[in-house]
Design a binder for these strands. Structure first.
Lengths: 72, 72
DNA sequence: ACTTTAGGTTAAATATTATTAACATAGAGT
DNA sequence: ACTCTATGTTAATAATATTTAACCTAAAGT
């Protein structure tokens, strides 16, 4: 199990609430690769603010509704 | 004038609304350097989500109250 | 059994963000 | 005029995010 970063997200849940959207479809809308979406969902690393904003826009949620910062 | 990234912020304003906080003081609270704070304020690049969350916490504002994404 | 699709995972390369040190300017205070 | 303090700026480097390609498994459809 690889190390996780301290920022959690509910992208995976939101994908399924949005018509069974696949990682691939989300990636295309974001302009990133499928592996990047997978890595973000698994908290391998946190996305750039720009990608975070695009995700936020796609799901119609505020940044804070999607991402949460877990204090160490 | 160097290129600007598409994410705006009002960190500079918030610093002054918070007891004349300097870039140096903010940088120390964030655990980054003064130059990083200066670069972010001038939109040289957007901060990592983690740094963005720390800024958000220091000023007691949501991410969307501090950062805005400007559509191209 | 075969094929397709979704997703997990890894390694190596590239792009972007952040650090450090240095030098510059402008304003305030003495 | 001199001295701080805050800030802007640049170059080189380090750290992190993202890409690309590859291989793997599981589930569903045929």
């Amino acid at each position: 199990m690889a190390k996780q970063i301290p920022i959690d997200n509910n992208i995976k849940t939101l994908r399924f609430l949005t018509g069974e959207m696949t990682q691939q479809e989300l990636a295309e809308q974001l302009g990133v690769t499928r592996q990047t979406v997978a890595a973000i969902e698994q908290r391998k690393y946190s996305p750039s603010l720009e990608v975070a904003f695009k995700i936020s826009k796609i799901f119609g949620k505020s940044l804070n509704e999607i991402f949460t910062y877990e204090e160490s």
